[in-house]
Write a protein that binds this DNA or RNA. Structure first.
Lengths: 209, 209, 209, 209
DNA sequence: ATCTAAGCGAGACGGTACGTCACGTCTTGGG
DNA sequence: CCCAAGACGTGACGTACCGTCTCGCTTAGAT
């Protein structure tokens, strides 16, 4: 599995592996079929058997690239979100962050949001693909946020003595919270308000402490 | 399902049903067996088959009270956390909140934390028990937090114009975030820092806005 | 498996096993389906998957009673030949033997003959059912022959100093030989001639030794 | 398939085919690997996949020469018994026959005996190689027996009015019988006794008919 | 000395069947 | 009428081989 990921993302790997190469046609058909099933029935509807049948592919071909339905689902989800949007757009880092949060919320609120949530929750294994998945959907956004926060510091919009780890969790955590628990909707009003509260703080400044 | 909950929690149910009553011994054995399996192998290891065997109970007895493994698991998890700790302890509402957050973090960091996370993520159905579960583990704490926050407002420790929904998500969301994503540990330092940052805000006060 | 055989053949087994008893309807449907497939496509066409489908039965039900396609096939073949014909009919034991040989040859020459041959050849395992199968189709006839030969001895039609084991193999072996190798047909002429040659011997009596 | 046999045994075939000739090294490795597997696990253990791997050979190379595992197994078995022993040795044709029967019994009793039996039983197809196999292991011995019997007739040791087909089956059939059914061992005592009984006959000469 | 057709290893391909596991339902006898 | 036991039909699991198909690389006769 890991080598597939590598081949398709980074390493050039001069030496071509021996034997017949994996069929890209099959790979595409599999990921498309998985995405379709995911769309129609959600995470629990994805079975190796069903995907193989819909993709017109043998089961062993699935297992050659993904070791179970969980991995396959993650791969398909990643595939649907291949193009990461540009982050920096405006002059204000905080404005950029606000935009990014809205986008993340929009993805989470969409059909695939629940699937992502379930996959993250279920992905307790230390698989390579699990890490890739978490990074792709969760941590990458968080890292973008870190850049924007640092920028905001240098723009003097944010204090320089904050704990970045905590600040980032404070901003992105609530999105996940609403996604999973679903007690309130994931709207732009929410993310905007969240950011505003995070920046301003809850404290009553007149009666400091 | 719902009547089981009722029987074991509140309503006395004057009219005893005809025939042999359900064995409480069986119920206890089942929940204990489920909890053991949960401890040993996690959520995915809980199967109706396995629980029945370990509890020395027939499968229909399981299905009489819980409609699938998911519900049974939730019931068992709820059972392990029956005693809700008192909330108010000190004079300061914020101190109480800090204590509560530490406790929640401790539960999440424990063995059953992951299980709770997975159950919440997977519980997209509108079952009665699902709601009970979410309330028990997630929303009840949030409501306790709401009380404490309101108290803090009347203690003039917190601004009165905050959006409580957002503030609560900002405080409890990061716990869930770390629980699920696991990028950083769920320590008391974290919850303390989180609360401090949430109260103080990220803004640079010298250069207001 | 073995207990099924026992139940259906000999032991009364006072104590009924607990739980839901095995469905005789399923058993019958399975054996019928197997026999049909056997008839249509021979031994190699019998697959657990195919039998389950045709019998309208789940695969685990097959595996509950037979551990693989080989055993199932043997069971089905035995079922098709449940009624063993009476042996003794005429006054002459040799005449009876001649009749029996004709019958055995007829069975071997029929459609199921090849199947029996292949099963015997492939049944190198020491399974209970394998022994039953061999006994049913091969050794039981041989034992009948032994009785008839003994009778023939007491009728003074056969020498009393012959080796029964060798004599029996000399009579029944050639049937198997033709069945398997197929170099000559398994006709009544053949069995009659075989018996005649076996009795008379090949020796040239005029030039004894 | 047939041309491979021809190439390796008899016909010179003037026109050499273009392109790279088949590797004899590969052929040898394949047959050796097959024989080893046969020795270790019997007929059912012979798979094209396994043979290819053990022989260090690609699967297409197997299929270029043999169309399935059955054919390959037959080829390997034939290879192990390439040198047919001389038949005539003594002055007495019957003695020679006795010797030959012992040899056949020895082969059948050996490890490869079962394999040969299974192959013959399973070889219901009219393949060229199937015929070769049957001839090689079964019918060739029978034909040698025919020659010896004829010789015995001209030596006045055997009646001239016997049916040779029946007589040959009466002699060789029991060997196969014991090989397949396995009710009694295939010893030299058995073949000697068998021949003696076949010659002498079972009849009670004193009370002729 | 090059060209070129075929064999070579490796291994992925679409399939089929395997034997197992758990599902949720049912059917027993017993309490 | 509940209970344990366990068989039932169903369906997915992950594996083993099947026989076919690319790959890039020999190899050796024909040019």
């Amino acid at each position: 599995m890991s080598e597939t990921v590598k081949n398709n993302s980074t390493a050039p790997l001069k030496r071509r592996p021996r034997g017949r190469p994996r069929s890209t046609a099959a790979r595409v058909a599999i990921l498309r079929a998985t995405a379709e099933i995911l769309e129609e029935g959600g995470v629990t509807a994805v079975t190796m058997e069903g995907v193989a049948q819909r993709a017109g592919v043998g089961k062993p071909t699935l297992y050659r690239s993904w070791r179970n339905a969980h991995e396959l689902t993650m791969a398909a989800l990643i595939e649907t979100q291949k193009a990461p949007p540009a982050v920096r757009a405006t002059a204000s880092a905080l404005d950029d962050l606000r935009q990014q949060l809205r986008k993340v919320a929009a993805v989470f609120a969409s059909r695939i949001g629940r699937s992502v949530a379930m996959m993250v929750a279920a992905a307790d294994d230390g698989t390579e693909l699990s890490k890739v998945f978490r990074t792709h959907f969760i941590l990458a956004r968080r890292e973008e946020g870190r850049v924007l926060l640092a920028e905001a510091v240098s723009q003097h919009a944010i204090r320089r003595d904050i704990d970045f780890e905590i600040a980032l969790d404070m901003i992105y955590g609530p999105l996940f919270y609403r996604l999973l628990v679903g007690h309130k909707p994931l709207t732009a009003e929410f993310t905007d308000g969240l950011l505003a509260h995070a920046i301003a703080g809850l404290t009553n400044r007149k009666a400091r402490r």
